[in-house]
Design a protein around this nucleic acid. Structure first.
Lengths: 231, 231
DNA sequence: GTATCCGAAATCGTATACGATACCTCCGCC
DNA sequence: GGCGGAGGTATCGTATACGATTTCGGATAC
């Protein structure tokens, strides 16, 4: 028989189900999660759903207020840029640590991902910020996931998940910045290919992300000075 | 009436209660958390206790296995050093970012904390690794908590909590390293006081933590090369 | 027309109950 | 004496039930 399948608890199922909807943007930031409704939908009682929501709360994906209920988390501008800055710092370190373990294959896939990114910039089609964001995330993931420090990778993944869902990604890239971003990716790949020293790689990564952050902020608030520590 | 007190949910109470015991080392890594027992102890049913444990699981402080139960989390050597390295990288960045916002008062308190650390090294008393670890954490906390990026501070706090409890802190400091550590703290404080450039601060922090990590590892496994990216 | 209060409905919070699963002990077999 | 299987016990997983709290709509006063 096919009992290789591991039995999964209802609370786990609820957890995954909700998380999936959040990532899908079916449940957008601020959306109210009603325990009873979700329980009915999944054909279970509220108890496992509550557990699932507690987990999601601990991960920062939802907020939960006593006697009020759960909502998909939202980040205000400040928290957003703090999160972004944190992500950038971690990622820069991760890529630097990954540098020596990157294989030919990793680099090839990264180049390829960057070419797909460049593809979205074709002047003949309208710039699609969402597609760009997804591909951009893929490009970055190829590099930082090669980092031998798995804990660091976990934290980066978690943080990126938060960011991806807390805000409409539409604000993340203005077309001009996107173009520059792709060029910077090339530059980074060149460094990695020729085995540049780790500090140079980390420095380049930070500059790259600082640029993105800057563009994002100045697009919304043309003032506000948020930076990255100069390496 | 004194109804300024906010009513706290039972699951929150359970959460805090368990967490407290873990931090106290009353519940040491590997300790089994039996839902019914905890519920009885806290005079509540198992439902809120389960929720609390799910939250703690999401934070990485306990592990929870279907139909088996919950245990206080343990980290093996590899995960431990990965976590430590991650913490170090984040903290170095945080202190660098904090540099410009540190007040006189912060620095004074940091000096004071370091003097208390030095006190534990008095040759006439036996070295107490646990006391040293606690004071050391306080010293570091003063500096990184001043970082304006609150998200980064949160992550560092969480990571430090994990580390503090996943292993017996007795292995964290051998006396020789402790002595060197205190000296490096002084050096760091000097840099901060004279407003050294952020990259120098970050560099110094990384070296400091890399040294600690190195000492720890070579104390257990005299081989294994784990480093920090050179800045 | 707006503000305020009251009551009903929706929803949350947790206790209790009970089936399901894993673990442990003891017995019989080899 | 050691090993495997049966039954009992401890514990987990979740449904159901019900009191507590919030929210919302409507009625009343100004």
């Amino acid at each position: 028989m096919t009992d290789t399948e591991i039995k999964i608890s209802k609370s786990q199922r609820a957890y995954q189900w909700i998380k999936e909807r959040i990532f899908n943007h079916q449940f957008t930031p601020g959306y109210r999660l009603v325990l009873g409704t979700i329980a009915a939908e999944l054909d279970m009682s509220v108890v496992p759903v509550r557990e699932a929501i507690r987990q999601l709360e601990a991960e920062g994906l939802v907020t939960f207020e006593r006697n009020v209920g759960a909502h998909v988390a939202m980040l205000d501008e400040d928290r957003y840029s703090a999160s972004m800055q944190t992500l950038s710092l971690m990622e820069a370190a991760a890529v630097a640590l990954a540098a020596s373990s990157l294989t030919e294959e990793d680099l090839r896939r990264a180049r390829e991902a960057n070419e797909r990114l460049r593809g979205t910039l074709e002047p003949r089609r309208a710039f699609d910020p969402h597609a760009f964001t997804v591909l951009n995330q893929q490009f970055h993931a190829i590099l930082y996931r090669a980092c031998p420090n798995q804990r660091l990778v976990e934290l980066i993944d978690a943080e990126w998940a938060r960011l991806g869902n807390m805000r409409d990604s539409i604000f993340t890239f203005v077309p001009e910045r996107a173009r520059e971003s792709v060029r910077e990716h090339d530059e980074l790949l060149d460094l990695l290919e020729r085995g540049a020293p780790t500090h140079e790689i980390e420095h380049t990564m930070r500059r790259h992300r600082a640029g993105t952050l800057q563009a994002l902020l100045s697009h919304n608030h043309p003032d506000q000075p948020v930076g990255m520590p100069e390496l």
